[in-house]
Design a protein around this nucleic acid. Structure first.
Length: 262
DNA sequence: ATGGCCAATATGATTGGA
């Protein structure tokens, strides 16, 4: 079965591309970020018509996450634990019933954090601390778990075409990368890095300054797998070609194939 | 990556993104 993540940068602007990509990639589960609409405005019918169950956690204008699944939802929970005052729609967790048992999935839109000298950066770091807490709790369950989304983290210099340009950026600061390593130290596996050491594996190219044409990309969208999911990892990849489509998102889909269901 | 964009908003200017 294939599980994917894609920051669509407005699901209303991307509905056509999303349908075309779903038809081609045939994922079983998809985590979406930056849907940028309230739940009532989500193109639910168009997605359901393609054979997916739909769970959404949106808000007006900004943020917004969703999970699409060919498997039924057993549980759906919105919001990352650890701060009841956090109203930003950045986290949605679901438990899915697959033919091989339960699969727990979270769609994650981690805060950008720029500029770092504002309160946006402490919010990002605190959010990462909350996510680590959540991850460590869930890992105790020893079940297949996939935390997929836009982490807004460049894990290592090889994950940027020009790492020098990102020094001092909230996506690449040492404190940011240290927290990302914390997820891995806790027992999660970065699916794409588990199957390839290649440089130039990017998931985001800015709309500005000809970044796509010059391949000035960064790798910031990740699927992190629990040991029980990583043991079943068959393949992983980045659908880079989608960035060349008409009216693209600035992010492309990232996917992993798990030997979990026929 | 910093000459160049894109999306949402009571919209024709501002904010956020990364």
């Amino acid at each position: 079965m294939i599980i994917a993540t894609w920051n669509v940068n407005s699901v209303k602007q991307r509905t056509e591309s999303l349908a075309a990509w779903l038809a081609a990639r045939q994922p079983d589960v998809v985590c979406l970020q930056e849907t940028k609409c309230v739940d009532e405005a989500f193109p639910r019918e168009a997605i359901e018509a393609l054979g997916y169950n739909v769970a959404v956690h949106g808000q007006k204008t900004f943020n917004g996450v969703a999970i699409l699944s060919k498997f039924p939802f057993d549980e759906v929970t919105a919001g990352l634990p650890g701060d009841d005052g956090d109203a930003q729609a950045r986290f949605l967790e679901a438990v899915l019933s697959t033919p091989q048992g339960a699969l727990r999935v979270a769609s994650i839109y981690l805060p950008n954090g720029n500029p770092p000298d504002t309160d946006k950066y402490p919010y990002k770091l605190k959010w990462m601390d909350r996510l680590l807490q959540y991850s460590n709790e869930r890992l105790k369950l020893e079940e297949p778990l996939v935390l997929a989304g836009d982490y807004n983290v460049i894990p290592a210099p090889d994950d940027a075409r020009n790492p020098a340009a990102w020094v001092g950026d909230a996506l690449f600061l040492p404190q940011t990368r240290a927290r990302f390593r914390g997820f891995l130290h806790g027992g999660l596996t970065d699916a794409v890095r588990a199957v390839s050491d290649s440089a130039e594996l990017y998931t985001f190219w800015d709309y500005q300054a000809g970044a796509w044409q010059k391949n000035h990309g960064i790798r910031i969208d990740h699927l992190l797998l629990s040991p029980q999911a990583a043991d079943r990892l068959v393949a992983a990849g980045i659908d880079k070609h989608v960035r060349a489509w008409e009216k693209p998102s600035d992010h492309v889909p990232v996917w992993a194939e798990l030997a979990l269901a026929a």
